[in-house]
Simulated assay, not measured.
Amino acid sequence: MYLPSLLRGPDGAATAEYRPDGMFADEVPGTAGLDVRLLAGGQTIEFCSTPPLGVPLEVTRTVNGVDWKGSDGGEFLLITVSKTYRVTGSVTLAIVTERFIVR
């Protein structure tokens, strides 16, 4: 879980780059600028390779699903996002699947 936490958000982020709920503005694709709150809804990590030291890394985000949950006025969205961490243009290091509760 250390790799995804390190790569979460830009280095030296300014206050404006955070959402009111404390997540980075681009944490969940499609929610920037919306008056909603995001909560962590679970995470799985598949480690694929050992990360090399001193090599630039890249992350690709993909929205896998958006589902309505709850009932009787307690409805919320559950957004599932996959993040693939790679050595730039090369080896896959980890695939992180995260679920976010959107209220």
Rank of each mutant, 00 (worst) to 15 (best):
residue 72 D to Y: 15
residue 28 V to R: 09
residue 62 T to S: 11
residue 80 T to N: 15
residue 39 L to S: 12
residue 25 A to G: 00
residue 33 G to Q: 02
residue 21 D to R: 03
residue 11 D to E: 06
residue 58 E to I: 06
residue 28 V to H: 12
residue 2 Y to P: 01
residue 46 E to L: 06
residue 29 P to W: 03
residue 50 T to Q: 12
residue 74 G to A: 08
residue 92 T to Q: 08
residue 72 D to T: 15
residue 77 L to T: 01
residue 71 S to I: 02
residue 7 L to N: 12
residue 52 P to R: 15
residue 44 T to C: 06
residue 8 R to K: 00
residue 9 G to D: 01
residue 11 D to F: 01
residue 8 R to I: 03
residue 83 K to T: 11
residue 40 A to I: 00
residue 30 G to Y: 09
residue 83 K to S: 14
residue 84 T to H: 08
residue 70 G to K: 14
residue 65 G to Y: 09
residue 83 K to L: 04
residue 28 V to N: 10
residue 23 M to K: 01
residue 5 S to Y: 10
residue 59 V to N: 09
residue 92 T to V: 14
residue 77 L to Y: 12
residue 77 L to W: 06
residue 23 M to F: 05
residue 96 V to Y: 02
residue 30 G to M: 09
residue 22 G to Q: 02
residue 63 V to C: 13
residue 71 S to V: 10
residue 24 F to R: 00
residue 68 W to Y: 12
residue 47 F to W: 14
residue 53 L to F: 11
residue 94 A to L: 13
residue 78 L to T: 08
residue 93 L to D: 09
residue 63 V to D: 12
residue 7 L to K: 04
residue 83 K to W: 06
residue 101 I to Y: 08
residue 37 R to E: 07
residue 74 G to C: 07
residue 8 R to A: 02
residue 75 E to N: 14
residue 18 Y to L: 07
residue 90 S to M: 07
residue 79 I to N: 05
residue 12 G to L: 04
residue 69 K to Q: 10
residue 15 T to Y: 00
residue 66 V to M: 13
residue 25 A to T: 01
residue 99 R to C: 07
residue 55 V to N: 02
residue 64 N to M: 14
residue 37 R to G: 08
residue 38 L to D: 01
residue 51 P to C: 11
residue 60 T to I: 08
residue 102 V to Q: 14
residue 28 V to Q: 11
residue 23 M to N: 00
residue 14 A to H: 05
residue 2 Y to A: 01
residue 63 V to Q: 14
residue 80 T to C: 11
residue 15 T to M: 01
residue 3 L to A: 02
residue 41 G to W: 08
residue 85 Y to F: 14
residue 24 F to A: 07
residue 6 L to V: 01
residue 10 P to H: 04
residue 81 V to K: 13
residue 49 S to F: 10
residue 10 P to V: 03
residue 60 T to Q: 06
residue 47 F to D: 04
residue 36 V to H: 11
residue 98 E to P: 09
residue 41 G to N: 11
residue 7 L to H: 08
residue 45 I to L: 12
residue 35 D to L: 13
residue 76 F to G: 09
residue 54 G to P: 00
residue 101 I to L: 09
residue 78 L to S: 10
residue 45 I to M: 11
residue 88 T to S: 04
residue 38 L to I: 13
residue 8 R to N: 10
residue 43 Q to I: 02
residue 50 T to A: 12
residue 95 I to M: 14
